[in-house]
Simulated assay, not measured.
Amino acid sequence: MSPAPVLVAGGTGFVGRRLVAALAEQGEDVRVMTRRPTSYSGPGVPVRGDVEQLASLESSLAGCRAAYYLVHSLDRPDFRAHDAAAARSFAQAAAASGVEQIIYLGGLGNDEDDLSSHLRSRREVEGLLGSTGVPVTVLRAGIIVGHGGISWEITRQLVEHLPAMITPRWVRTRTQPIAVDDVVGYLVGVLDRADALGRVFEVGGPDVLEYKEMLQRVAAVEGKSLLVVPVPLLSPALSSRWLALVTDVDVRSGRNLIDSMVNEVVVTDHSIADVVPLTPKGYDDAVRAALDERRREGR
């Protein structure tokens, strides 16, 4: 008898579409939750579902043994309230459907810090997903490096569009970037693991870098030179407008991400290695992989 299906909510997004492909490749019966199933053409079976419609969630989750939750809404002015409501509905539907594990991709950050609204929302979602009794496995990550990811696109476009930058102070904040393929490896690895149920794991690559160093290392990989001059005068609002001028990231999403860049996001708990013994690639290799994928797509 084959195992029950696995649902991926957010399966058409940056991480989700890669996760769906990886699960399908290892023989999983994957359901891809989307609001427009007739337009989906990737691996897995598309099912209609909308986090704003509880009935659609219950039908999407019916018969599933596990569900990945990769949903968030940075581009909305009320994203925190919207994400909380969506997580409550998903948790309710998962419990009603008998789901045995929810796997959620959240964000790194020390709870004792004054976390941004974006990171605080990720913490709220963690709790809400587990509020109906379904065991939740949380993977917390920082910057995810891969073609099409919003944080990576900000980095790449800044480097490629500007030979020099007068930047906000957040470029001195430390982070621990991770390649998108390694995030997917961890997400696949915790599925059906009894020792991952009800636990929070932190994941990151081997390099701990300031945002300034990340920008300069991308420039080096691309054979460019880059001058970065941090100044104390650029507010988050001005920073997001500055990003909108030199990248194709919209102002609201940029502002929400910039607000989080004041928080250090570094792995302090390495217990994921006991459950998923994966060796993540270094930052420069992750950058090369992202650039290679972009070239293959002719971008």
Rank of each mutant, 00 (worst) to 15 (best):
P163Q: 02
L227I: 12
E222I: 11
G63A: 01
L70V: 04
M33A: 12
V275L: 13
V266R: 07
R36V: 12
G27N: 01
A141H: 00
L209W: 04
H270I: 07
M33Y: 07
V30I: 07
E126C: 04
D269N: 12
A179F: 09
D111I: 15
V228G: 03
L234E: 06
L158E: 05
V262T: 14
H82A: 13
S97K: 04
S151Q: 05
V45Y: 10
F90P: 09
V221F: 06
V8F: 05
A21M: 08
T34Q: 11
Y104R: 02
T34C: 02
V266L: 07
L191G: 08
P5E: 06
E58F: 08
V136F: 00
N256P: 08
P280V: 02
G106Q: 00
A196P: 00
D207I: 08
S73P: 09
D195R: 08
D195G: 07
V20L: 01
E126I: 01
H82N: 06
L278V: 06
L278G: 07
A196N: 03
M261H: 10
W242M: 15
T247V: 01
Y104V: 10
S2I: 12
I150A: 14
G27F: 07
R76A: 14
L57I: 02
H72I: 07
L209S: 12
S235D: 01
R172E: 15
L128P: 07
S116D: 04
L108W: 01
S97C: 15
A66R: 00
I166W: 05
Y104T: 08
L233K: 04
L243V: 04
E28L: 07
G13S: 11
L115H: 01
